[in-house]
Amino acid sequence: MTVRRRFLLAPSFARLIRRERGGPRHVEGFFPQQPERSAWVRLEEDRGLLVLTTASPDGEVEDETEIPGAQAQALLAACAGAVDYTRTILPLGDRHVLVDEIPRPGVLHLVTVAFATEAEARGFGPPEWFGPEVTGDPRYTHRSIALRGLDKVPEIPLSDAALNRLIDALDTRVPAPAQTRGDAVGVNLDEIEEAMLRDMARIRPKGTPA
């Protein structure tokens, strides 16, 4: 059983995370929804997964079967809709969070945290750099984005405090799980911080103190 909480993420924060930590490209294709269950296929570069998700009173139960990449490509072509994204795995305390940059079929930036139980999920306090929570909003699931498209995403306010907390998280020396064909690129966080502070200054409403 897996319980997930999802949050929106400011686009500039998502870009900063990807530039610092990198991440592989994924494509997920979804078959039409069935009562109490759904099936979908994920292509992680050359690795394919066929996934069956079943709803239960305690959360979602997922059964995964690894399949050849060529077979995953064929299944993707038969899917009702697909979503394309780059995923970065970032350590956060005693767990890891998944940061997804979705360019297609609509631009969206999400951060997802997985838990073993509902109690564990309820006890989680999101850090300041997370945006609004959308766990209960089906519009922001990969399935909904792939099959129904994406409405306009609300603008997420930025703050110095949120930026500083994110830089602290990126500056940790705890290694993240291995990512396929590590695409991480070393960057100067000070330079990025200066650029993001300029972004925040541009979007501050007029008359708001700096």
Results as ranks from 00 to 15, higher is better:
L158I: 10
V61E: 12
A146S: 10
I167A: 07
R198D: 14
D168T: 14
V97P: 07
H142D: 06
I102Q: 02
E193I: 02
S12L: 13
F30C: 02
A210P: 11
G131Q: 11
T2L: 08
L92P: 03
L150V: 05
D199V: 14
V3N: 04
S144C: 12
T54N: 06
W129K: 06
T112G: 04
E44A: 15
L163N: 08
R173E: 14
M200Y: 11
A201Q: 13
S159C: 11
R181H: 14
P132A: 08
E101V: 09
R139W: 02
Q73N: 12
L43H: 03
R18P: 00
R19P: 00
I192T: 03
D160H: 12
P205T: 05
L98F: 14
Q179K: 15
D190Y: 05
A201P: 01
L147D: 00
A176W: 08
P35G: 04
E133Q: 10
T208D: 11
L166I: 08
L147Y: 03
G23W: 04
L147M: 07
S38G: 13
L98H: 14
G59Q: 03
G136E: 15
P103N: 02
D137H: 01
V99C: 13
Y85W: 06
I102F: 01
I145E: 05
T54Q: 15
P11D: 05
A184K: 12
V113R: 05
T172Y: 02
E133D: 04
M200G: 08
F7S: 04
E64R: 12
P91R: 07
L170P: 10
I156M: 06
L170K: 08
D171Y: 00
F130I: 06
G22Y: 10
A39S: 10
I192K: 13
L166P: 11
A80G: 13
L150C: 04
T141E: 00
N188F: 01
N188L: 06
E120I: 01
P68S: 03
R25H: 14
V187A: 04
L90N: 09
V107W: 02
S56M: 05
R181C: 09
C79D: 03
G149N: 04
C79L: 05
V113W: 08
L16S: 05
S38K: 15
E28I: 02
P103M: 00
R15C: 06
P68N: 04
P105I: 01
T208I: 11
A176P: 09
R25S: 10
L8I: 03
A178W: 02
R173W: 06
Y140I: 01
S144T: 14
A77P: 00
S144L: 03
L43R: 10
V187W: 01
S38F: 05
R202L: 15
A77K: 15
E194H: 13
K206M: 11
T112Q: 10
P126E: 02
T208N: 00
L189C: 04
G182C: 08
V174Y: 09
L147T: 01
V134Y: 04
G136Q: 14
P11S: 05
E128Y: 02
T180D: 09
D94M: 07
G131M: 09
I156Q: 11
S12G: 07
G182A: 13
F124G: 09
P205L: 14
R25D: 13
E193P: 01
